[in-house]
Design a protein around this nucleic acid. Structure first.
Lengths: 126, 126
DNA sequence: CGGGATCCAGAGGGATACTG
DNA sequence: CAGTATCCCTCTGGATCCCG
């Protein structure tokens, strides 16, 4: 979906499910957050994980996550530039949610073009 | 976001996080699934829970959930018509995910009209 | 390296009216 | 009651080029 960016909680005022979904809604947010669970990552490092994510999209998703207080952006005044992304304390509280998402996916999502039987167990997302 | 409806796993083939998100992506899906955790519900019954969801949208979301094998639709040949929705076995496996979403929302989602991130402290003088 | 600016298509979603 | 059928528009997200 595209839930209107924090326009409001459409379900009902204060609906917790809707509210949480708004945080991880955006084509790449869930996955970005998940990867950052592993630790700090540089921009391109993160990008390499998201095979089909354009540079512009990754930037935008990261900015929104930053605005939501879930991700911290650290810019190092160097040449060439270095920017590192990490989860904030608030972002880390999403860990149970992200792990639940991952666990369900591992059990129930049928992988595309990977016929059952030769299911690969490299479950590192991204 | 609007992830293209199951077009593919954009993150990476088999990415479990991305895959799970695709299931509950759609403006009302997460909330619908959550409400169905409580048990079978009729169409309008469900609709009353989703304050701002139009009839058309609810129908569409339910159809997609049905197509994904998460929701069962039972039509009773009566007049007036009666249609009941319930979670399938597969749908019920999402319970941990939905509960995680709810739990986080309860703890971290700031009530509407106070968008997270731009919390303003308008100091009333005097 | 890590972006920003611009242009653009189309899917997602809203409003409204009609129906078996 | 539980939907279709249209119309229309917003916003997301992709492509491309440029920048310090």
């Amino acid at each position: 979906m595209a839930r209107t960016r924090h326009a409001r909680l459409d379900c009902a005022p204060g609906c917790p499910v809707e509210g949480t979904l708004q945080m991880i809604d955006g084509k790449w947010k869930g996955v970005v957050l998940f990867h950052l669970l592993s630790g700090t990552m540089r921009f391109n490092e993160l990008r390499r994980q998201l095979t089909n994510c354009t540079q512009r999209m990754l930037t935008r998703q990261l900015r929104e996550l930053e605005a939501d207080g879930l991700v911290h952006r650290e810019v190092y005044p160097e040449v060439p530039p270095r920017v590192e992304y990490s989860l904030t304390a608030r972002g880390r509280t999403l860990e149970p949610v992200l792990l639940a998402l991952k666990a369900w996916g591992e059990d129930h999502v049928i992988a595309p073009e990977i016929p059952a039987g030769e299911v690969e167990l490299t479950l590192v997302p991204g």
